[in-house]
Write a protein that binds this DNA or RNA. Structure first.
Lengths: 354, 354
DNA sequence: TTGAAAGCGTTACCAC
DNA sequence: GTGGTAACGCTTTCAA
């Protein structure tokens, strides 16, 4: 592979001049020189050696993306948008799966330092763990996606950027859609492990019910998954919880599920029990995974605006890498409702415009 | 961050000695020296700078993984296994999505060269395209996963390693399972765009039928998807093709679908038409995406042994990076059948041991 | 407007 | 057994 010296020689200039071109310092340069250099680059098929640039500048044009598991469709969707947003800024994405193991998290962070990566997007992990704090102290810029961090920063400045869907609004939006479509007895079905995100969703759900004058007693149905994070387990849990929904004292006519995998499990369990969706029971999920559009009936779901979120994350990451003193921010994104077929349309109404 | 000189100083030795430790040349070394160096590393929290190593050795301890889209669950599953296999060899994975655009493919390859990456796993792309050939000429080691490359290498040595599920066996295995369970009139449903993989699957399907003495006429049902590669489109196609299956002159009692997304679309379409699975129609998919286990009834599917395949890919990649003259190989992996609930169990039989 | 040269952290060759 | 040192390809300061 050609290097900067070859280019300089080919163009009859010095290495520094070529470097100036590479770094956009062409304003003071004779047009003709510029052209000669550009031609030389093209002729030699030159592309600068990132390792060398990195060694010199300490900047890798790579960002890390740490997710629990790329197999989880929500994180796959995130990864795609992050890749897209990073690509538009000429950054590449180094992918890490934690499999929910701290050792993997630490190893990833170590590796990112070693590779000269200066910024990481961390999805759905508790950022208060020591290895994250330590990484932050050592200068790693980290952005927290879909935070599991404690909600109140206690007045102190947050240590990390936090980007998340407004979970409270998501819970609210899901149940409001049910109410708008004439449902009168919604329940909220969730995995039992408490997290901040879950708490907010439940909070939104309950608030909307109260505002509608509905008694909230007994409307949270939960169960413990074998493993709290796999979609398969989540879906199995849904199957199991279907029975609890049917037997619930509040005689539910509709369900908000904490996520789509759980919702799809519920669909299966309800179907087996002879409960038809949406005829006998309406259902809204949260996340809008790809799968939601593939099952029958299509699952109505509340979705985070992933593209915008990814773009802001990349933006913040690059900004803070360039200026490490730029203070972290927290930002909440309004969710969107994706209407499919799992919610009953009231008689004589056209569901499309509700 | 501490560097190799700091460690040397701290341990009272020279940088070369530290470098020797880093590179495992400790056999001739006094135990005590080794210990001092190791202690110094630990004390300083030293980790070697990959960029510098890379600049020196031309070796990045990163591999590229190029997939059409990480959102497609088959590729997400692949990515996970590749990450795992790479991690066990201390390699990180740089992810690229092509979105089926040649420009993205070229840009990714360029970037990999620039980042000092010497090996790439390319999933489901035609490797005969000029930019891949050129990359190979420039010394990039590439492994082709689930090849769309022309089947016969015309006697010449292949240019790339090719790792793929044995598609012919997969087609055969799927239909054999149906026959074993007493189905007598299977059809094969597929997207119409011809690829090598599809051809093999169809071939296996037809061969097994012929061996069973079943007339193959009219047993291939195909339709063109709006876009041949998205799972959503694939699933929509399945919905649409359900009608053709029902109306088919061969009066099918069972279906092999070219992939799970299509199969899941078929499930929806058939259900709407009042055809119950597996009571009225049995169904086998190919790929075994996560989703297959989540839908109701669970979709029986034929699956590539991803873990082993990923391990072999990483293995071959590293071997060939270390010795570029090592000739490329082609390797086929036997598929496995994952039995769920979408195939009818004959009366009086226990499907579990078929 | 362009060039010379130092140095980023590591490796590996050759001395001792 | 261990140490000195010249590269690897680039950026950037300073000088011309």
């Amino acid at each position: 592979m050609a290097n900067i010296r070859d280019v300089a020689q080919h163009a009859g200039v010095s290495v520094s001049t070529v470097s100036n071109v590479l770094n956009g310092r062409t304003d003071q340069m004779r047009k003709e020189t510029l052209k000669r250099i550009e031609d030389a680059m093209a002729a030699l098929g030159y592309s600068p050696n990132r390792a060398a640039q990195q060694l010199k500048t300490g900047q890798a044009r790579m960002i890390g993306l740490l997710v629990p598991s790329i197999v989880n469709p929500s994180f796959a969707a995130l990864a795609r948008e992050v890749d897209l947003a990073a690509g538009s800024r000429q950054f590449r994405v180094l992918l890490g799966n934690t499999y929910r193991k701290e050792s993997e998290e630490s190893a990833f962070i170590e590796d990112m330092f070693a590779h000269g990566v200066r910024g990481i997007i961390v999805a759905a992990s508790d950022m208060e763990k020591p290895h994250f704090r330590q990484a932050a102290r050592k200068g790693m810029i980290m952005i927290n996606y879909d935070s599991r961090m404690s909600a109140d920063s206690g007045g102190a400045l947050p240590r990390f950027d936090t980007i998340s869907m407004d979970n409270e609004a998501a819970g609210r939006m899901a149940v409001q859609h049910l109410l708008d479509r004439g449902c009168r007895s919604p329940v909220f079905v969730t995995e039992a492990t408490p997290t901040v995100g879950r708490g907010c969703k439940v909070g939104g759900f309950l608030a909307a019910l109260r505002e509608a004058g509905i008694d909230v007693e007994g409307r949270i149905i939960e169960g413990k998954a074998r493993s709290a994070y796999g979609d398969t387990e989540m879906s199995e849990l849904g199957q199991a919880l279907a029975a609890q929904v049917i037997e619930s004292g509040v005689r539910p006519d509709s369900i908000v599920a904490i996520n789509d995998a759980l919702a799809i499990g519920l669909m299966g369990g309800l179907r087996r029990a002879g409960v038809a969706i949406p005829r006998d029971m309406s259902l809204v999920g949260i996340d809008n995974i790809l799968l939601a559009g593939l099952v029958t009936p299509g699952l109505t779901s509340v979705m985070p605006p992933l593209r915008e979120m990814a773009e802001l994350m990349i933006d913040r990451l690059i900004t803070r890498i360039d200026d490490p003193r730029c203070p972290p921010q927290e930002q909440l994104f309004a969710p969107q409702l994706i209407v499919r077929e799992s919610v009953r349309v009231p008689e004589g109404e056209n569901g499309a415009n509700i």
